[in-house]
Write a protein that binds this DNA or RNA. Structure first.
Lengths: 157, 157
DNA sequence: TATTGTTATACTCTATAACTATA
DNA sequence: TATAGTTATAGAGTATAACAATA
């Protein structure tokens, strides 16, 4: 592993040394790269990664409790409130307060929400295909297995 | 690769399905995990990841141009201005306007800045050791090689 | 008393554009 | 005219605490 020297001009060569051996730094840089790819692919479509994952999570778990979904997706409750309000205003999601626990809020997709999600699914997964990120299919799979271990330490791999 | 079912209660089991095959989602989740580890390890020390990488970059490239460093570290110029102001106020960094191009700003560490960085280096790299993230040394190395390819597509690996 | 979700505040980081001073 | 950095503004996301309704 060599330190990248990203030259932008003559004198503007900057060495990063052992910084590139920091897993945290590499993940941060990778995330910015992936976000760039995401923005390029989703240009025009008016959707954020958080919105897609939330819609996806609701589709997989109909009538999911808002707080439970927020916890699994690592979205803070206060932020989830705003995110859901936006999705409801857009007519993609409906909220329901169940009689058995009237403190809670349960979420489900509207037909429009499902349709919207279905149009986005393949595009969303295509963000990690070879032509978009420059890894071989083998490398991409290997990377996802390792990241899965890192992100979900308890889960079966 | 199995979808993680992070149970938080009884009914609160949430499935994530093929969402966990999205590289972007996995990197996002991994980054949050790494940030948690970072915060735990750096608790009390009053330093952000961005400050450490900036100090590190200045140490490796004395008299580096502020804009060149910002570009390599993927920090926006406007944000870099504030970050540097903070470091200067803390007495860790000095700014110099060179006579050959009086528009530019060149950065270097003060003795205090170097001392501060030296105290942080090992701790910063330790964030990715096995006991902290739950990967074997082999897996950790493999992961860093793959992330390096992803984050720095052009660089020699 | 504890829990679910909401509101409010503050702070970080990002995106963008307008601005200055240089070149 | 273009570039380097700054300032200002708006927005997303986060952290935190206070709060209302409910259990």
């Amino acid at each position: 592993m060599t330190a990248p020297r990203l030259q932008t001009g003559d004198d503007d060569t900057v060495a990063l040394g052992t910084l590139t051996q920091s897993l945290g730094f590499l993940i941060r840089m990778s995330q910015l790269r992936m976000y760039d790819v995401f923005c390029r692919i989703f240009e025009g479509l008016d959707t954020s990664p958080g919105e897609i994952t939330t819609l996806w999570g609701i589709d997989l778990n109909p009538e999911v409790r808002q707080g439970a979904l927020a916890r699994v997706l690592n979205i803070k409750p206060a932020h989830m409130t705003k995110l859901v309000q936006r999705l409801v205003r857009s007519g993609l999601v409906v909220r329901r307060v169940p009689p058995e626990d009237r403190r809670s809020v349960r979420l489900s997709l509207t037909p429009k929400g499902l349709q919207h999600l279905d149009g986005l699914r393949q595009t969303f997964l295509s963000v990690h295909t070879a032509e978009n990120i420059g890894l071989t299919p083998t490398e991409s799979t290997q990377l996802r297995v390792l990241l899965h271990k890192l992100a979900f330490p308890g889960a079966p791999s």
